[in-house]
């Protein structure tokens, strides 16, 4: 399946977040502000010169750092569908957010050999006040496509989404299912080399799920790379060529989908949080 050069290379990727009250966000008091003003530049300089491990400093307040993901490495080839499995809070969504450049990593790097369209949390960056059609244009523009290129795909996108009747209605009046269908249709039809999908199948009905699965297979056959997060293990096994298991922010296993899913299920019973 995968050819000479991988489409996505991820090497030692890590992202840390503040948990439990970031002193600079949750209590925006004077003390925190002064900390920020005087401490931050000092840290910036010492980091640069001491080549210190990239961690977040500012040890003020009640908050602490937590690595959402750390030392994540894998690669995905052209036309490959990679399923990502893990419990809630394991770091799957953070990984996709990093790859779609919404947030920046704390350490490590990723290299993407193509344009990325993403659908993270059924919403895909739609704007409620814009109509379905205008949102399609917006999505295309965000990917850097020209107006003509977007218009050329317009009909295809609309017909797959099955929201023809409401395509000129503001998206804020859509049902969740409609937003979802349109969102998936947009990211599937705008010809990006890489497609990131986070948990789309959770909301859709059975028929739509089936069509998504077929579409994703088609997308992969046409040479595009798909990264796909789902709790629907059955579907994941069906469409993935390979899967990785993420546990506590690290890649625990990388291999055939059924083995990864089996491993995931084996550990599920031992966990007290789902």
């Amino acid at each position: 399946m995968s050819s000479e050069q991988p489409m996505i290379e991820v090497e030692g990727l890590g992202k840390c977040y503040w948990v439990g009250g970031h002193p600079l966000i949750d209590n925006m008091g004077m003390h925190a502000l002064l900390e920020r003003v005087f401490r931050a530049p000092v840290n910036l300089i010492t980091d640069r010169f001491l080549k210190r491990e990239p961690t977040c400093h500012y040890p003020v307040g009640k908050g602490h750092m937590r690595w959402a993901i750390r030392e994540v490495s894998f690669s995905v080839g052209r036309g490959e569908v990679l399923g990502i499995v893990g419990h809630n809070g394991a770091g799957k969504s953070v990984l996709l957010k990093l790859l779609s450049r919404i947030t920046q990593p704390t350490e490590g790097f990723a290299r993407l050999h193509g344009r990325v369209s993403s659908m993270l949390e059924a919403g895909t960056g739609f704007h409620g006040e814009l109509t379905g059609r205008e949102n399609i244009r917006l999505s295309g523009a965000i990917l850097g496509m020209t107006r003509a290129e977007i218009e050329a795909r317009m009909d295809e996108i609309i017909s797959f989404s099955e929201v023809e009747e409401y395509i000129d209605t503001p998206v804020k009046r859509y049902s969740t299912g409609m937003v979802l269908r349109l969102g998936f249709s947009v990211s599937a039809h705008l010809d990006t080399e890489i497609m990131l999908i986070d948990e789309v199948l959770a909301v859709g009905d059975q028929r739509f799920k089936q069509r998504c699965i077929e579409k994703m297979r088609g997308v992969a056959r046409s040479g595009r790379t798909v990264l796909f997060v789902s709790h629907d293990l059955e579907v994941l096994q069906k469409i993935s060529d390979r899967a990785i298991l993420i546990r506590n922010g690290r890649v625990e296993m990388d291999g055939a989908p059924d083995q990864v899913v089996a491993e995931h299920l084996a550990t599920a019973t031992g966990m007290n949080s789902g």
Binding site: L13, P54, L98, L99, R101, Q104, P105, T106, E107, G108, F109, A110, R111, L112, H113, G114, R115, V116, G144, M145, E149, D191, T192, E193, S222, G223, R224
Partner: peptide, 19 residues
């Protein structure tokens, strides 16, 4: 079959910590 739309862009996209 991937369209030529994005040919003009420079690859790869590097994702790194800000520095």
């Amino acid at each position: 079959m991937v369209s030529s739309i994005f040919k003009k862009n420079r690859w790869p996209i590097e994702i790194r910590p800000p520095s």
